[in-house]
Design a binder for these strands. Structure first.
Length: 463
RNA sequence: GGCGCGGUGGCGGAGUGGCUACGCAGAGGCCUGCAAAGCCUUGAACACCGGUUCGAUUCCGGUCCGCGCCUCCA
């Protein structure tokens, strides 16, 4: 029996996962605000929850997991981007959405089941805000609608912050339309040059948190299984989502399990758009294969902080080289069966312990190198590939992995030229003219081509 | 000030109350014409101080250090 254990931010403990509806899983992950290219900090939750998505599909069946990841396409940062560039908002958001989707695909992520956009769900948000006013949890003031935090007895359960502490810590002046310093906006007025929608409170736009409450409700129901995102969303975003959804629905529970990935750091500092120290996925892809970036991300457990370094990327590349190296030896062998190693599954079932899972990949790869019979080789190949598939890596043809042009280092040599030089060198070797054969090998090395002689053939790879 | 996370060998990074993480780098060896790749062997760690225990890197308490949240942020 496979038991998946997940760490729940709400309880700060690992628990055995049990779906609310037996045999089917609903998961909501906060997606990007689309005003700029994705940085690798944005990519971390996408990759982490993609692995969880794959794992859940493995356990419950491909069609049994409903994975919703929203796109925030109405936000003051987008308005700011519009004012900076003068471009139309729709131009900015649709271009950014396309870039995001393409970047995430190159990083080996599956598409979520649904990728709803906030602006397509304004009526649902308005409906929920009306409900909150009716239940006495929200009020209208100077064109704004605010959630009244004191109206909810157990506000702050997720972040374990209480209202008094929040007020003490508040570094921002309290807006005049707020009855309580902790209150937050559900709806705010838009000027004529800002995007807006008609509502019972005039033309305006939604506050930050309401879209996730409205869209999770729409696609997953009032209560669902897993809600994920980065640690920085715990407060205020997820706390406020809980407040909105629980009060509007009259339910005590919103998401059953809250999962949060740790920060991605650069030079020991949190990477974020506001600090300006971010590395975009685009830039990284100029120098590294998507799988390298992905494996680098998975080498650290998702709840730990991850310091992003070129050394880490080099290690990820080296690991992939060794996996593909093992696979290359058996490239012409059909895989025996897509069997998942038990040890590998055990690692992932324990709160998605990807470093432990990668260790198993190394063991499988080593076993594959040592395997002697065809049957053993085929079996290990199947296990390695199946494990890689669950992590979203090892999707390339091994020869292609080594031989395809790496934009990082242009060799200037075509495949044809390389093969001719290898042939010339092997002729020299047959003649025992090692001075010549070594000279050719050195020349190739100068162009970034490394040779590997085996008994039957000479393989090559680009550095 | 409040809340929270972390300090593991040269580096990255898991994990455990008593026994090998794993990878990279290093050393030695096998293989090779020589290499490369691969394989074998190998050295090296659990911030500090107390406590619990037969025994703690692992549990408890304290100290120091680093980081985050409390304000937009994955």
């Amino acid at each position: 029996m496979t038991v998946l254990k997940l760490y729940n931010t709400k309880t700060r403990e690992k628990h055995a996962f049990k779906p609310i509806n037996e045999g089917a899983v609903g998961m909501y992950v906060c997606g990007p605000t689309v005003y700029d290219y994705a940085h690798i900090g944005n990519a971390r939750p996408v990759i982490i929850f993609d692995v969880l998505f794959r794992l859940l599909r493995q356990i419950y069946g491909t069609g049994k997991v409903n994975y919703v990841r929203n796109i925030t396409d109405v936000d003051d940062k987008i308005i700011a981007a519009q004012q900076d560039s003068g471009e139309d908002i729709n131009v900015i958001t649709s271009r950014t959405i396309r870039a995001f989707q393409s970047d995430m695909k190159v990083l080996g992520n599956l598409e979520p089941s649904i990728e709803p956009q906030a602006t397509d769900h304004i009526p649902q948000m308005i409906k929920m805000i009306e409900k909150l006013i009716l239940t006495g949890n929200a009020y209208q003031e100077q064109g704004h609608v605010c959630f009244h935090v004191p109206s909810m007895a157990n506000y702050g359960r997720l972040s374990r912050l209480n209202r008094e502490e929040l007020i003490v810590g508040a570094r921002v002046e309290v807006a005049p339309y707020k009855r309580d310093p902790a209150d937050f906006i559900l709806w705010k007025p838009s000027s004529s040059d800002q995007p807006g929608w008609d509502s019972p409170w005039g033309r305006g736009r939604p506050g930050w948190h309401i879209e996730c409450s409205a869209m999770s409700n729409e696609y997953l129901g009032i209560t669902f299984d897993i809600h994920g995102g980065g640690q920085d969303l715990i407060f205020p975003h997820h706390e406020n989502e809980i407040a909105q959804s629980c009060c509007a629905n009259g339910e005590d529970t919103f998401a059953q399990i809250w999962m949060h990935n740790g920060y991605l750091m650069v030079d020991g500092e949190k990477m974020s758009k506001s600090l300006g120290n971010f590395i975009t996925v685009r830039d990284l892809l100029d120098s590294y294969h998507g799988e390298t970036i992905r494996l680098c991300m998975l080498m650290t457990h998702y709840r730990q902080p991850l310091n992003w370094t070129s050394n880490g990327l080099a290690q990820a590349k080296s690991s992939l080289d060794s996996f593909y190296g093992a696979l290359r030896q058996v490239n012409d062998l059909p895989q025996f069966i897509d069997e998942l190693s038990e040890e590998f599954m055990t690692a992932l079932l324990d709160d998605i312990n990807t470093p432990e899972a990668i260790k198993v990949l190394h063991e499988l790869s080593k076993d594959l190198n040592k395997a002697e019979t065809k049957k053993a080789k085929a079996q290990l190949k199947g296990k390695l590939l199946a494990a890689g598939k669950l992590l979203g890596i090892l999707n390339c043809d091994p020869n292609n992995w080594f031989e395809s042009e790496n934009s990082n280092l242009k060799s200037g040599l075509s495949e044809d030229q390389i093969n001719k030089l290898i042939l010339a060198r092997n002729n020299a070797r047959d003649d025992k003219n090692f001075a010549l054969s070594d000279k050719i090998r050195d020349e190739l090395l100068q162009s970034g081509i490394v040779l590997e002689d085996s008994k039957s053939i000479t393989r090559w790879k680009r550095l």
